[in-house]
Amino acid sequence: MSALCDWQSAGEPLDTAPVPQETEALQRYAYLVRRVVAHMRTQIGVVADRDDLQQIGLMALLKAIRRYGREQDEQFESYAFKHIRGAMLDEFRRLDWRSRQSRQEAHRFRDGVRQLRSQLGREPSEPEICAALNISTKQLMEFHYLEQAEVVDSFEQLLEQQGPMASEDRDIARLEQRRLLAQTMQQLPARNKLLLQLYYTHELNMKEIALTLGLTESRVCQLHKQSLQLLTEKLTS
């Protein structure tokens, strides 16, 4: 609980500091922050300061406690997880974690894989990609995470864009969005569908999903990216 102590001593930037009842709830649900930190660090694939992420997560958790509007129940965990995850995504965007260099490297990586795929007439294996591009397995994984992060970020922003509309119209748009998402999910291959369920519903990270499905972490990243690209195309068509 050192992160909670540091955060409290540093000063609460919200309107008021947590009251004893809120502090107790923060301590009880602090594990959600640790879970989201693990989830996000694996997804984004960048070096981020764990303490900074925990501070952001704890502030988001306090906001979730205050906004929930009733005593925490079995539904609160999912509610708080989404709020904490959203706060961390906003922070990644604010910091612009994709540096110009990383974008250029990702572009060269995509071009190299595309050229190799054209030469082979099929999807290249991980060892073939590493040999052709003269990169390590770890570097290959980092490239996959960078590509995946870009797709995830675009997909998340698409879901968040409701535009300036009346509350009733916004609710209708969200219902239609959920219907279209569910409909599109049914069109995905069974493995892709399961992967998305494990990631978004069961909140597993890429490494945990790889172990569950018996795939490499790199392959899980590719399948996740492909699934989100398909969903994005359907939602924007």
Rank of each mutant, 00 (worst) to 15 (best):
S2V: 09
S2W: 06
A3H: 10
A3W: 08
L4C: 05
W7T: 08
Q8I: 03
Q8S: 04
E12R: 06
A17K: 07
V19G: 01
P20V: 05
Q21I: 14
E22Q: 11
T23R: 07
E24K: 14
E24F: 12
E24W: 11
E24L: 13
Y29E: 02
L32F: 15
L32N: 15
H39M: 06
M40F: 14
R41P: 01
T42S: 15
G45Y: 11
V46E: 12
A48E: 13
D49P: 02
D49T: 02
D49S: 10
D51T: 14
D52H: 13
Q54M: 14
Q54C: 11
Q55A: 07
A60D: 06
L62F: 08
I65F: 06
I65C: 03
R67Q: 06
G69M: 03
E71N: 04
Q72G: 01
Q75A: 11
S78Q: 06
Y79T: 07
F81Q: 09
F81G: 10
K82M: 04
K82S: 10
K82D: 13
I84E: 00
G86H: 03
A87T: 07
A87M: 07
M88S: 04
L89N: 11
D90F: 09
E91Y: 15
R93P: 02
R94H: 15
D96G: 05
D96M: 05
W97I: 15
R98E: 13
S99G: 08
Q101G: 06
Q104M: 12
E105R: 13
E105L: 12
A106P: 02
A106L: 05
F109M: 06
D111L: 15
D111E: 15
G112R: 01
L116R: 05
L116M: 06
R117V: 00
S118A: 15
E123Y: 09
P124Q: 04
E126H: 07
P127S: 01
P127I: 01
E128N: 08
C130H: 02
A131L: 12
N134K: 15
S136Q: 03
Q139D: 07
M141W: 08
L146C: 06
L146M: 00
E147M: 00
E147C: 09
E147K: 01
E147H: 05
Q148T: 13
A149F: 13
V152P: 05
E156F: 14
L158E: 10
P164V: 00
S167L: 07
D169Q: 13
R170K: 14
D171Q: 10
I172L: 15
R174P: 00
R179G: 14
L180M: 09
L180S: 07
Q186I: 04
Q187M: 07
P189L: 05
K193S: 05
K193N: 11
L198S: 02
L198D: 07
Y200R: 08
T201Y: 05
T201L: 11
E203L: 09
E203N: 10
L204I: 06
N205Y: 12
M206H: 10
K207Q: 12
K207F: 01
E208P: 12
A210L: 00
L213E: 09
L215P: 00
S218N: 11
C221I: 00
C221A: 03
Q222E: 13
Q222W: 06
Q226Y: 10
L228E: 09
L230E: 11
L230D: 04
L231H: 09
T232M: 01
K234R: 14
T236H: 03
